[in-house]
């Protein structure tokens, strides 16, 4: 059996077993889904300022990345602080297989949570507006194809950085990622959600960016060494 798959399966199982992290992340995702669904269907000043397509387009990426951000640390960073990574690096699994397996597991869990949040958003918005809200084809394509690739690219790059950097640098990196993500989810999302027409061009650009980023991460893995990881352990 492929070792990346073995690692991915184990990380997936472990993420699901970590109930507190899972529930907290899911809670955050659902919170934003509810807030945005309320705004979508609110009467008054907010009504009409954001569109269903625009909201789903931006929120699916933002929430996906936010979920990935909160889970990556449990899979990459924690293994370094606990020093378990040394045992894993001593196994027949190569560094690339380890990185790929972990990236796949976090991407899958983060994507499932983001998708769940989007379904909740659509359901609440449909109930409140008493009409079935269905996103356009580019947005559906975006949610099904581009979003998981984008999440994978983020996890791949962030995981790579967590493996390569020391503890202090990792904390700083986490802080630097968190601020724009949180700001995006709280305020910027409403502005971005105001884009009423999501075309195939938007979707294509996001997918292209995601593919480029994931390729960059896969390329950069070759420069990561076990020595770098071992000498930056907590």
């Amino acid at each position: 059996m492929n070792r990346s798959y073995i690692i991915a399966r184990k990380e997936f199982k472990e993420l699901l077993a970590n109930r507190s992290t899972l529930l907290t992340s899911l809670g955050v995702a659902l919170f934003f889904a509810i807030v945005y669904s309320m705004s979508l269907t609110a009467e008054g000043s907010v009504a009409g300022l954001i569109s269903v397509d625009g909201t789903l387009f931006f929120l699916s990426i933002m929430l996906g990345v936010f979920m990935a951000y909160s889970l990556t640390g449990h899979v990459f960073y924690k293994e370094k602080t606990d020093r378990i990574i040394e045992t894993l690096l001593s196994s027949p699994a190569t560094l690339r297989q380890i990185w790929l397996g972990k990236t796949l597991a976090v991407t899958l869990v983060a994507y499932i949570m983001a998708l769940t949040a989007m379904l909740v958003l659509i359901t609440i918005a449909s109930i409140r507006s008493q009409s079935f809200i269905l996103p356009g084809a580019p947005v559906l394509f975006h949610m099904i194809i581009a979003v998981p690739v984008f999440i994978g690219a983020f996890v791949g790059l962030n995981g790579l950085a967590q493996m390569a950097l020391g503890m202090k640098e990792n904390r700083l990196l986490g802080f630097l990622i968190f601020i724009p993500l949180f700001a995006g989810l709280y305020g910027m999302g409403f502005s971005l959600g105001a884009v009423t027409s999501i075309t195939w061009v938007y979707t294509g650009l996001v997918l292209l960016a995601a593919v480029l980023l994931i390729s960059l991460a896969a390329f950069l893995v070759r420069f990561l060494s076990t020595e770098r990881i071992v000498t930056t352990l907590g």
């Binding site: 059996m1 070792r3 073995i6 690692i7 184990k10 199982k13 472990e14 077993a17 970590n18 606990d82 020093r83 378990i84 040394e86 045992t87 894993l88 001593s90 196994s91 027949p92 699994a93």
Partner: peptide, 29 residues
């Protein structure tokens, strides 16, 4: 490395997995 066994300062075990799940994981690797 398939023929090398290692027990370092850290036991190399995952706290959120059971004993059997830990052994199963390494057996597969």
């Amino acid at each position: 490395r398939c023929k090398v066994g290692v027990l370092l300062e850290n036991d190399g075990l995952y706290e959120n997995l059971t004993g059997v799940q830990n052994l199963n994981y390494y057996a597969s690797l």
